[in-house]
């Protein structure tokens, strides 16, 4: 018979990674420093990849000349309006899909058929429909944001506990009250995580639409810098887009913390 002797070996622990904010910041700063050092040492051809200092210089010139704000404001207003349009209609449709048998199958059929179309392919069509101006850009963004929002919202509504809804009914709450006070808050976590997806989709579509037909906006700016072989400004535009994405993600994080305190 085999024997066991001695202390019991420890075999738990692990599988609990911790976030370290300082490590995140240090990694980014370290990479930038490495990049700058390699460029200064002549290891990177600066025409093809300008060093961080040159990008910073380009950003500074853009800021003082007012050029930066001209493009950024155009992009931000398109992003805000297009995203809000798609989100509002998406949430309304998602709730309808989640609650109504009459709407569920018809709406989901349309959503499923249109969702897989790469929305960039629709930009030429939207230009024909809504003109080369703001209309086509807002339609592209709104369309791109709408479908993932519907899917996220409908999924969130499906996951709201039926027990809570029955509770609302048993206390005589109206359908509207149940929707507003039980269904919508219950679906909110899913809707907010949908925001993370739709905000990055919106930025992709914003840049694409601005590249196809716009004289203002970060997409147009990056494209024209590329046409001129002006890689300093081109990279400056790309850095702006990265900053834009980070800012949006940060705002969504703030919204989650404020709205989901109860979790």
């Amino acid at each position: 018979m085999p024997r066991l002797d001695g202390p019991v070996p420890f075999r738990g622990g692990g599988f609990a990674p911790q976030s370290r904010a300082w490590a995140a910041a240090a990694t980014l700063l370290g990479l930038i420093a490495l990049w700058q050092a390699a460029a200064s040492a002549g290891a990177i051809p600066t025409l093809f990849l300008p060093p961080p200092a040159a990008i910073a210089r380009a950003l500074w010139h853009l800021t003082v000349s007012g050029e930066l704000w001209k493009h950024l404001s155009a992009s931000l207003s398109r992003l805000a309006v297009g995203w809000v349009l798609g989100t509002v209609f998406g949430i309304l449709t998602g709730i309808a899909v989640g609650l109504s048998s009459a709407l569920r199958s018809p709406a989901m059929a349309v959503v499923s058929a249109l969702f897989p179309i790469p929305k960039i392919a629709l930009v030429p069509l939207f230009i024909i429909w809504f003109g080369i101006g703001e209309g086509s850009k807002l339609a592209t963004l709104g369309f791109g944001v709408f479908f993932p929002t519907v899917i996220a919202t409908a999924g969130g509504v499906d996951n709201v506990s039926r027990g809570l809804i029955r509770m609302g009914q048993s206390f005589g709450l109206s359908t509207w009250e149940i929707t507003r006070k039980i269904v919508l808050p219950g679906a909110l976590p899913a809707i907010l995580s949908g925001f993370r997806v739709t905000s990055s989709i919106a930025i992709v579509l914003l840049v694409a639409a601005e590249m196809i037909g716009a004289d203002r906006g970060i997409g147009a700016f990056v494209l024209s810098a590329g046409n001129l072989y002006d890689t300093d400004n081109l990279l400056a535009g790309i850095v702006l887009l990265s900053a834009l994405g980070l800012t949006v993600a940060w705002l969504i994080g703030l919204a989650e913390r404020a709205l989901l305190r109860w979790r």
């Binding site: 027990g163 509770m167 048993s170 039980i182 808050p185």
Partner: peptide
């Protein structure tokens, strides 16, 4: 006719007072 539920059926996003105020 008012129920008390086995699983409590409280809204997790409302405080104790908010859950009572709901009805």
């Amino acid at each position: 006719l008012t129920y008390v539920f086995q699983d409590f059926a409280l809204l997790p996003w409302r405080s104790v007072a908010g859950n009572v105020a709901l009805v």
